[in-house]
Computed example of a mutant assay.
Amino acid sequence: MDLPTLILFIPACFALNMAPGPNNLLSVSNSTRYGFRTSCLAGFGRLLAFAGMIALASAGLAVVLQTSELLFYGIKILGAGYLIYLAIQLWRANPDADTRTQSAPVSLRALARQEFLVAAGNPKAILIFTAFLPQFIDPTRGVCAQFAVLGALFLMLELIAISAYAYMGVHMRRWFAEPKGKRLFNRGCAVLLSAAASVLLTARRA
């Protein structure tokens, strides 16, 4: 995996990590009620679910990427289309929509379990690992090793996102709840995702 690939992957991936979703909104809610530290620790339940998804995607797609270049490019197009779809949804999202999450038990284990279940039951997460990560894989090299690197980077960026949303919940709750601030945040993520999709669609692998 070369440096230009990582330079493209990191901001595109971070845009996905930071995009408002059920888990990130859960971090905001948990930090508001239970504090920054508890919200961040509960987020490890989410990371556990994502790590399992990454391992399954790596094992299942390794053979595909190594044996069929056509399927590889099919996945590439699917992933770019998903990024564009997500960007459109974020751009058009109603900032006045009710995003309140259900109350969670005070137990840290229960909060982590809730994070795990929300992540495991999110179909968008499955698409990310089966359609987004493979776009940065070079099938002529070790696929599993590249998945491990990209997966580790994804989890590190996800941990940053967990901390950022927990911080918002503690210190920026009023700003985040304002329709104008939420709209700007959504559209900023939408621009990053659509730009990444455009680059991926036009890029050609040697």
Rank of each mutant, 00 (worst) to 15 (best):
29 S>K: 11
192 L>I: 07
160 I>Y: 05
171 H>E: 07
193 L>K: 05
151 G>Q: 10
84 I>Q: 01
93 A>V: 13
77 I>Q: 04
176 F>S: 10
193 L>V: 10
141 R>T: 08
174 R>D: 03
127 L>M: 15
53 M>Y: 12
59 A>V: 10
39 S>N: 04
188 G>V: 04
153 L>V: 15
144 C>F: 09
52 G>Q: 04
183 R>D: 03
83 L>G: 04
104 A>H: 10
87 A>V: 03
156 M>C: 15
113 R>F: 05
52 G>I: 09
112 A>Q: 05
72 F>V: 12
2 D>W: 04
67 T>L: 06
9 F>R: 07
99 T>E: 02
26 L>M: 10
41 L>D: 00
26 L>E: 13
112 A>T: 09
42 A>L: 08
114 Q>V: 01
58 S>K: 08
16 L>I: 11
178 E>M: 14
82 Y>F: 13
101 T>S: 11
26 L>Y: 14
37 R>G: 00
73 Y>N: 09
68 S>H: 11
116 F>T: 11
3 L>Y: 08
81 G>S: 02
73 Y>R: 15
117 L>C: 05
134 P>V: 00
75 I>A: 04
27 S>G: 08
195 A>Q: 10
108 L>N: 00
15 A>M: 04
4 P>Y: 08
111 L>R: 15
182 K>N: 02
205 R>N: 14
194 S>I: 13
109 R>H: 07
105 P>D: 10
79 G>H: 12
195 A>H: 11
77 I>W: 11
56 L>G: 06
20 P>E: 01
85 Y>Q: 01
41 L>T: 03
4 P>G: 06
141 R>P: 00
72 F>N: 14
33 R>F: 03
30 N>S: 07
125 A>V: 12
61 L>M: 12
66 Q>N: 07
87 A>N: 00
30 N>G: 02
74 G>R: 06
60 G>P: 11
60 G>L: 06
144 C>G: 08
53 M>A: 08
132 F>I: 10
80 A>C: 12
76 K>M: 15
167 Y>H: 10
5 T>S: 06
153 L>Q: 05
35 G>S: 00
145 A>R: 12
87 A>Y: 03
177 A>E: 11
69 E>I: 15
64 V>K: 12
84 I>E: 08
131 A>N: 09
85 Y>N: 05
183 R>E: 06
146 Q>S: 05
109 R>W: 11
